Simulated assay, not measured.
Amino acid sequence: MHAHRVTFLLLLLLPASPVLANLDVHPMRVHVDAGRTSSIRVHAQSSRTQYIRATVRQVVAPATEDEHEVDAPPGDASAIAVTPGMFALAGGGSRLVRLIALEPVTEETAFRVYFEGVRAADADAHTETNETASATIGVSLVWGVLVNVLPADGQVAMQLAQGRLHNRGTLRLGIRRIEQCVAAVCSTHDIERSVYPGAALALPFQPVAGARLRVHYRLSRDGYREHQQTLLP
C-alpha cells in the first residue's frame, strides 16, 4: 500500500569516510492517540557508537497519487514531538524514542519520523554522549516510520457514490476487501488500500443495482482486528 510503504533513503556522503553501521527500527508504523504517547525502539547493528537524529515530516494527501511530505511545524505547533530528537546510540545497544501527541487533530493525520546517522560534530550540544565516543558516516540508511495521530473522538463513516467509496469520517480506513452480494451469490474483491478522511477510493468493479456491499477494513488503533460495514449502491 502506497501510504504504508517502508521508507529507506540511501545517503551518499564523503567516500573517504568510514561507513556507519545500519540501524534497526521497530515498529515501522505506529499510532498516537490524542493526549497519549507511543514509542519506537532504535537498535544498533554494530559495535561502534552512532549519533542519531530524528526529524518529523507531515504526509499530505496520504495514500493518493498526490501524496507528498512537508516539514512539520516546530515545537508546540506540531501535532507530535519526538524525544529525544538527537541521541548517541552505543554499539550493540538500543534506545527507546517516545512520540508525544501535542496539538489535537480533528481527523487522523499522517507523519513520517525519519531516523538518520549524523557526524559527531553535527550532534546537538545536549546529546547524551561521552568523550571516547566517535562516529563518522559515509553511507547511511535513513529509516522512515509512519506515524498516525488520531483525533480524540474518531468516527467511522463511509458512503458509496458514483462508483467510489468516500471516507466521510475522521479515521483512516484500511480497506482489506469488498464483497458484493446479489441475493445469496457473493463475489470478493481484494483491495488493500488506505482511505484517509476526505478521500475516496475508486472501486475496481461496477456495483450492481440492488446488491449489498460488505466493506472489510481495519483501523489504526486496532492493529489487525477487522471491522465490516454493509452499504447499498
Rank of each mutant, 00 (worst) to 15 (best):
P151K: 06
P151Q: 09
P151C: 10
P151H: 09
A152C: 09
A152E: 13
A152N: 06
A152D: 11
A152G: 12
A152K: 15
D153E: 15
D153T: 15
D153W: 00
G154V: 11
G154L: 02
G154R: 04
G154Q: 04
G154N: 02
G154S: 03
G154T: 11
Q155M: 10
Q155G: 00
Q155R: 15
Q155Y: 00
Q155T: 15
Q155P: 00
V156Y: 12
V156E: 02
V156T: 14
V156D: 05
V156N: 10
V156W: 09
A157T: 01
A157S: 13
A157R: 11
A157C: 07
M158L: 15
M158T: 04
M158S: 08
M158N: 02
M158C: 09
Q159R: 15
Q159D: 13
Q159C: 11
Q159E: 15
Q159L: 14
Q159V: 08
Q159S: 12
Q159I: 00
L160K: 00
L160P: 03
L160R: 02
L160V: 14
A161W: 01
A161R: 12
A161M: 01
A161G: 00
Q162E: 13
Q162W: 03
Q162C: 01
Q162P: 04
G163K: 10
G163W: 07
G163N: 08
G163V: 02
G163I: 06
R164G: 07
R164I: 08
R164P: 00
R164D: 06
L165R: 01
L165G: 01
L165W: 02
H166D: 06
H166C: 00
H166I: 06
H166R: 06
H166K: 05
H166W: 03
N167M: 07
N167C: 09
N167E: 08
N167Q: 06
R168N: 04
R168T: 09
R168Y: 04
R168I: 06
R168S: 07
G169F: 14
G169N: 13
L171K: 04
L171M: 09
L171S: 01
L171H: 00
L171Q: 04
L171I: 05
R172G: 07
R172T: 08
R172I: 03
R172V: 11
L173W: 10
G174C: 11
G174T: 08
I175K: 04
I175T: 11
R176H: 09
R176E: 10
R176M: 13
R177E: 04
R177W: 08
R177V: 09
R177Q: 10
R177I: 10
R177S: 11
R177L: 09
R177D: 01
I178D: 04
I178F: 01
I178H: 04
I178G: 02
E179H: 13
E179L: 14
E179P: 05
E179G: 12
Q180C: 14
Q180L: 13
Q180I: 12
Q180R: 11
Q180N: 10
C181H: 05
C181R: 11
C181Q: 15
C181Y: 03
C181N: 08
C181V: 07
